Measured scan of single mutants.
Amino acid sequence: VPQRAWTVEQLRSEQLPKKDIIKFLQEHGSDSFLAEHKLLGNIKNVAKTANKDHLVTAYNHLFETKRFK
């Protein structure tokens, strides 16, 4: 089981690129989880459509539901 890579403050910070969060989610989330949160596909394309709040919610949801690969 992966550990949380970032704190809530870090997740919301401008310093953390959306692409980093997407990469983490794609590496650790199950396909059904990723599909549900519309996070499947090319990281660049996902970054265009997903806002930061959406990614933070998905990140927290992944750990709450433990839907890891």
Rank of each mutant, 00 (worst) to 15 (best):
V1S: 08
V1G: 07
P2T: 05
Q3Y: 07
R4M: 11
R4I: 06
R4N: 12
A5M: 14
A5V: 14
A5G: 12
A5S: 13
A5H: 15
A5E: 15
A5R: 15
A5C: 15
W6T: 13
W6A: 11
W6L: 09
T7G: 06
T7F: 05
T7V: 04
V8K: 05
V8M: 08
V8N: 15
E9Y: 02
E9F: 02
Q10D: 15
L11I: 05
L11S: 01
L11A: 02
L11Q: 02
R12W: 15
R12S: 09
R12H: 14
S13G: 04
E14F: 06
Q15H: 09
Q15A: 13
Q15C: 12
L16G: 01
K18L: 12
K19L: 09
K19S: 15
D20A: 07
D20T: 13
D20K: 10
I21P: 00
I21R: 01
I22A: 04
K23M: 09
K23S: 12
K23R: 10
K23G: 07
K23H: 08
K23D: 07
F24A: 06
F24Q: 03
F24G: 01
L25A: 00
L25H: 00
L25P: 00
L25Y: 00
L25R: 00
Q26F: 05
Q26I: 06
E27I: 07
H28G: 02
H28Y: 14
H28M: 09
H28V: 12
H28K: 08
G29N: 00
G29D: 00
S30A: 10
S30V: 06
D31P: 10
D31L: 12
D31E: 12
S32I: 09
S32D: 11
F33Y: 07
F33L: 05
F33D: 00
F33H: 02
F33K: 00
F33T: 00
F33R: 00
F33I: 02
L34C: 04
L34A: 02
A35L: 12
A35P: 01
A35Q: 10
E36N: 06
E36H: 09
E36V: 09
H37K: 07
H37R: 09
K38I: 05
K38M: 14
K38P: 02
K38Y: 12
L39V: 04
L39P: 00
L39R: 00
L40Q: 10
L40R: 09
G41Y: 04
G41T: 04
N42G: 10
N42L: 13
N42P: 14
I43L: 10
I43Y: 10
K44Q: 14
K44P: 12
N45Y: 14
V46E: 03
V46I: 09
A47H: 08
A47W: 06
A47F: 04
A47R: 14
A47I: 12
K48Y: 11
T49D: 13
T49I: 13
A50P: 04
A50L: 12
A50M: 10
K52E: 04
K52H: 04
K52R: 15
K52A: 05
K52C: 09
K52F: 07
D53P: 05
D53M: 06
H54G: 12
L55V: 08
L55P: 00
L55K: 00
V56R: 03
V56A: 09
V56P: 01
T57G: 06
T57Y: 13
T57Q: 10
T57D: 14
A58H: 02
Y59Q: 01
Y59T: 02
Y59V: 03
Y59E: 01
Y59C: 01
Y59R: 01
N60A: 08
H61F: 07
H61L: 11
H61R: 10
H61G: 08
L62G: 00
L62S: 00
L62V: 03
L62R: 00
L62P: 00
L62A: 01
L62W: 02
L62I: 05
F63A: 02
E64V: 08
T65H: 14
T65R: 10
T65P: 03
K66S: 11
K66V: 05
K66T: 06
K66Q: 13
K66F: 08
K66E: 11
R67I: 04
R67T: 10
R67F: 06
F68E: 04
K69H: 07
K69P: 04
K69F: 05
